[in-house]
C-alpha cells in the first residue's frame, strides 16, 4: 500500500517509492528511492518527522514528509 511518509504510523516500516520534493536534499542525507525506513518520531503541526534508515536517523519537516511516497512493509507491532 502506497501512502505519504507523514501518514506512516510509529514503528512501521516502509520502502521509499517516490520523492516529490527536492530529491537532492534528501538523497545527500541518505534517504533515497528503494531504501527501507522506519518511523521513529512524528510531531504534529510542522514536525519534525524522524525516520531510521539502517544506522541513520534523519529528521525532516512535516511538509517534506508529505512529499515522500512510501510503500508499507510492516506495522512494527
Amino acid at each position: 500500500m502506497q501512502i505519504k511518509l507523514s501518514d506512516l504510523p510509529f514503528g512501521a516500516t516502509a520502502i521509499v517509492r517516490e520523492i516529490r520534493t527536492s530529491a537532492h536534499n534528501l538523497n545527500c542525507m541518505g534517504l533515497r528511492i528503494g531504501k527501507e525506513l522506519k518511523m521513529v518520531t512524528k510531531q504534529p503541526i510542522k514536525g519534525p518527522v524522524v525516520v531510521l534508515i539502517g544506522e541513520l536517523e534523519i529528521a525532516m519537516g512535516l511538509e517534506t514528509a508529505e512529499q515522500i511516497v512510501v510503500e508499507t512493509t510492516g506495522t512494527g507491532a
Binding site: 538523497n27 545527500c28 542525507m29 541518505g30 539502517g54 541513520l56
Partner: peptide, 9 residues
Amino acid sequence: TKTDRGLYV
C-alpha cells in the same frame, strides 16, 4: 557505519 551517505558527497 554510514558509508552510503558519505559516498554521496
